[in-house]
């Protein structure tokens, strides 16, 4: 189709869809009279019954934990799919020798920049771990902390080179770690069945009393949270690894 024709069709349709959206949006309740029963109930339940102060994490890993299982596997399968799509089928084993891939500095990082980045790497890891394990108390959790953790090797790549990235991350082990993180979620859910409860029931030790809220008071919530953190970290590093490898090694092989 020629460009103007396509644009004409698209903008006609887009105008109609925008009008449809507007027609439905004007009927939505305003911020004052929004139907927030779910919010109110969860806010009450998650502190008293789940000993968790971050209601979002409680919803994600307990009330609607089954959704999150699916979402975690969406991430899992997306990473696997990317690996399949980016896999190197025409690369000869010889082309992988370490000396053949010394792309040097990925960017022309100045010493000042390198020092800064290296200095920031440690705090980044720390902040990532903090975000993961405090998921049930403060905003954050496995997903958020996982992606922060995954930027640490990226920082090393920016400061040093892909070689350093490769040295601290192993493709093979990352895959295993990712799969273990993803599988652990399902297994924890399955454990409840053996206790005679429904799938995903919170069967681990919960805090006692109204105020007993700490890092581990959420029963299965912190455990699942940690599993998700592991999965997301490994999955993201794997994704970055695949992209960087595709880019840098093909270039080496081609030149």
């Amino acid at each position: 189709m020629r460009h103007p024709g396509r644009m004409g069709i698209f903008f006609t349709g887009a105008a109609a869809v925008a009008a449809l959206y507007a027609l439905s949006a004007i009927r939505l309740p305003g911020p004052e009279d929004v139907r927030g029963e779910y919010m109110r109930i969860i806010n009450g339940e998650c502190v008293t019954f789940r000993h968790v102060t971050d209601a979002v994490t409680a919803v994600n890993f307990d009330f609607r934990g089954f959704d999150t299982l699916g979402e975690e596997f969406i991430l899992f399968v997306s990473v696997m799919g990317t690996l399949v799509l980016l896999r190197q089928t025409d690369a000869k084993p010889g082309a992988w020798a370490p000396d053949a891939l010394s792309p040097g500095r990925a960017v022309g990082a100045s010493d000042a920049l390198r020092v800064w980045i290296l200095a920031m790497t440690g705090p980044t890891v720390l902040f990532g771990i903090y975000t993961v394990i405090h998921g049930q108390l403060t905003p954050g959790g496995g997903f958020q902390g996982g992606v922060i953790l995954a930027t640490a090797p990226l920082l090393l790549y920016l400061a040093e080179s892909f070689d350093v990235f490769r040295r601290i991350t192993s493709h093979r082990y990352l895959e295993i770690v990712e799969a273990v993180g993803a599988g652990a979620y399902g297994v924890i859910g399955l454990l409840a069945l053996f206790r005679g409860r429904e799938f995903m029931a919170n069967i681990f030790h919960l805090g006692k009393g109204g105020n007993d809220i700490n890092l581990f008071s959420g029963g299965t919530i912190p455990v699942i949270n940690a599993a998700v953190g592991i999965e997301v970290t490994a999955g993201f590093v794997l994704l970055l690894y695949a992209f960087l490898q595709e880019m840098l090694e093909r270039k080496e092989a081609g030149s």
Binding site: F66, L69, F73, F76, M80, E175, I176, E178, A179, V180, A182, G183, G186, V187, G189, L190, L193, E198, F199, M200
Partner: peptide, 21 residues
């Protein structure tokens, strides 16, 4: 009531283990 979640959960766990090992 064991069965309802299993059609979803079993393949997911097996898939994760296959990727791992």
């Amino acid at each position: 009531m064991w069965f309802p979640p299993l059609p979803v959960v079993i393949p997911l766990i097996v898939a994760a283990s296959l990727v791992a090992i």
